[in-house]
Design a protein around this nucleic acid. Structure first.
Lengths: 221, 221
DNA sequence: GTCTATAGGAGGATAGAC
DNA sequence: GTCTATCCTCCTATAGAC
């Protein structure tokens, strides 16, 4: 019953995840079909039974890498319910995004690391989906700003881009033993959140004490 | 009198800046010696009179790219004098760092974009200098935190890494017409700075009104 | 579905003429 | 200081046997 009738034999998936792992660590141009084939005990000829070209492989990795991050992040945020406090929303989204990038699944990190170095023909068709993710975050940030949790003078769209930078760049410095993902996320949430407010409070936000739950992360990160 | 007696003829510099421009836009592996040579009307054989290998070229670009950012940023900050307010220091440093990356000089951006994709033998010797820059920023952030301008629960070292991410990632999305460098910097300063404080003020910091000067950037960025 | 063999091209690097 | 010519390696992709 659980048999799969389409192309998704184990081999195809194996090629993709192995390629993603190599792209993640070595970059786009440095990865060769020979390298992929060798890493899974195959020859390059066999790869062409499953994919028509190197670009065909990378296209699918970019696609899946992006989809996985988006759906994981959205899932984590929606699980909080409609009226979750801004801090919880930001914490969940930021932490999940970083977890995706730094986790064992190499698709998200491969996507982030090689995107800029991939041929335009591969990159162009993915721009629409990437834009949706950008808008998703911008809307969240706008809403948090409206609720008073983010400094009113910050541009939400620019903030989303700066936030992506802070999150995606963890790929360049994160070392599993030395850093904790959650404390990285906590530090980043503290940045995005407006500090304890002095001015008049806006709509539904609660008191500044809600910031407490991500306190005392300074010593650990 | 102004004649130069070392290797620094115009040609050598021309090769380097042309290579940097290509590395910046195409990535490390995608740039070929033939491409560099062709772009300046030379042949690959001639390149080897000036450099002994591709790695030799990239080594110098990484080196210079890093040095230029560091000295520009340090210069901008030191020009403010010893007792400059934290906001001014952060604004100057952040803006200068971003200006270096997005400016006409391709060495800083090439350095940032290809670093992770360069052979280890080239990367390893540069780690020491890069670490110094990291420490330089961490010290600045620590000092700002001590003066109360940065949230006390944030880890300054983690903050420096997140800040580098936000700044360096501008390379991936900045478009000259659509964004203003200064407003990007203003937005980022607002993030790093603690919002208007409610608790007891610490040492030398002045009133929250100093935040005003980077206000109203939301509409522009 | 995987293999071997190989075509066809591009890469870094060198030798030696000018 | 720059050129041409070339070596050798490695790449993507294909053809056809098993």
């Amino acid at each position: 019953m659980a048999r799969i009738h389409n192309d998704e034999t184990g081999t195809r998936e194996q090629i993709l995840s192995c390629a993603a792992r190599l792209f993640r660590t070595e970059g786009y141009a440095a990865v060769t079909l020979r390298g992929i084939a060798k890493a899974i005990g195959m020859t390059t000829g066999s790869l062409y039974y499953h994919f028509s070209s190197k670009e065909d492989i990378v296209r699918e990795i970019l696609d899946q890498g992006h989809k996985r991050v988006f759906s994981e992040v959205r899932g984590a945020i929606e699980a909080l319910g409609e009226n979750a406090p801004c801090e919880a929303i930001l914490k969940a989204g930021i932490q999940k995004h970083i977890e995706c990038l730094l986790g064992e699944d190499s698709f998200p990190s491969a996507n982030t690391r090689i995107f800029a170095h991939v041929p335009v023909e591969v990159r162009a068709p993915t721009l629409g989906e990437r834009h949706k993710y950008e808008l998703y975050w911008t809307d969240i940030l706008k809403s948090c700003q409206k609720r008073g949790a983010i400094h009113p003078d910050i541009n939400p769209h620019t903030l989303s881009l700066l936030l992506f930078g802070a999150m995606n760049w963890t790929l360049e410095w994160y070392k599993p033993g030395r850093h904790g993902i959650e404390s990285i996320a906590d530090n980043l949430v503290l940045l995005v959140l407006r500090g304890p407010k002095v001015g008049a409070r806006q709509d539904g936000e609660r008191t500044p004490s809600k910031v407490r739950s991500v306190r005392s992360v300074a010593a650990k990160a």
